Amino acid sequence: MIRLVTGGVRSGKSRFAEETARDVGEKVLYVATGVPGDEEMQERVARHRDRRPRSWGLVEEEWDLEAALARSGEWDAWLIDDLGTWTANHVMRLSEESIREDQGGFEAEMAKKTDRLLDTLQDQEVILVTAETGLGGVAMNRMGRLFQDALGTVNQQVAQRADEVWLVACGIPCQIKGVDG
């Protein structure tokens, strides 16, 4: 079963995803896509880590989620947090010139990566966390718009193939796709 949890920044989506994972099983692999590059981000990572049960596994992977999952072993569930950071990591690898000249190639490449990831996730218990790009304004620079467009496509692809989709706002989860229960 694939579950997608989306929402705005600081909406409570990660906490809800963690609670959902606890209900799935004891052996959960937490796949973190963020890299703590500064002190503030290190504190955020520590808060997330402190919330999780000690029995959960951890894989930190910025780019190649398929490979990380392939070598991860057997788990009751995978919790991937988050697709927005995964997409941003790919954007940050681009040169300024390629960002400036992009005519949809990056978005198409992320769509291919997402399809491959979703193929890997089929027949697994997985919870994917993402940020909802449609809740904010249009970015003021080309890199920001490239990110928004790509993440919007990634989110739509995942939601289309997901069994359940949850929107979290103000800490309150609302199921927007799938059957309750």
Rank of each mutant, 00 (worst) to 15 (best):
E125I: 02
G73D: 03
L146V: 07
M140Q: 09
L128H: 09
T20L: 12
G84M: 04
E107I: 05
E40M: 10
M140S: 13
E19Y: 02
T130S: 15
D102H: 05
G25S: 05
R145M: 04
T120M: 15
E43W: 07
W75G: 12
D64T: 06
R44Q: 12
T153F: 00
Q103V: 01
A77W: 01
T20D: 11
R15Q: 12
E60A: 06
E109A: 15
G57R: 05
E66N: 11
T114G: 01
V35L: 13
R47C: 03
D102P: 01
I127H: 09
R71Y: 04
L83A: 07
V129K: 11
G73N: 06
L58C: 08
V154H: 06
H48R: 15
F147L: 03
A68V: 08
E61I: 01
R47W: 10
R49I: 06
E132N: 14
S55I: 12
M41F: 09
R145D: 02
D76H: 06
V59H: 07
S98K: 12
G57F: 02
V59N: 02
E39T: 11
L135A: 06
E26W: 03
N89S: 12
T130V: 10
V45Y: 10
E97M: 04
A77T: 03
D50W: 00
E101Q: 14
G34I: 05
T130N: 13
E66S: 10
W86S: 13
D38R: 01
R51V: 09
R116N: 06
S14A: 03
T153N: 10
K113L: 15
D50Y: 00
V28K: 08
R15W: 13
F106G: 06
D82V: 07
M41E: 14
W56K: 03
V154G: 04
V24I: 15
Q103M: 07
R142Y: 01
Q124F: 06
I80V: 15
L121F: 08
E18A: 10
E61S: 13
D82H: 05
A139Q: 11
G57A: 08
G137N: 14
W75M: 09
P36Q: 13
D76G: 09
V154P: 01
T87P: 00
A111H: 03
P53D: 12
R71M: 14
L117S: 12
D102Q: 06
W75N: 03
G34A: 14
R15H: 11
M92S: 08
E132P: 12
T33N: 12
D64V: 08
Q148P: 03
R22P: 00
V45D: 08
S95P: 02
E60Q: 08
A88F: 00
T114F: 05
S14Y: 08
W56A: 04
A32T: 04
D115T: 05
R100W: 07
A150S: 15
M143P: 02
W75H: 12
R145S: 03
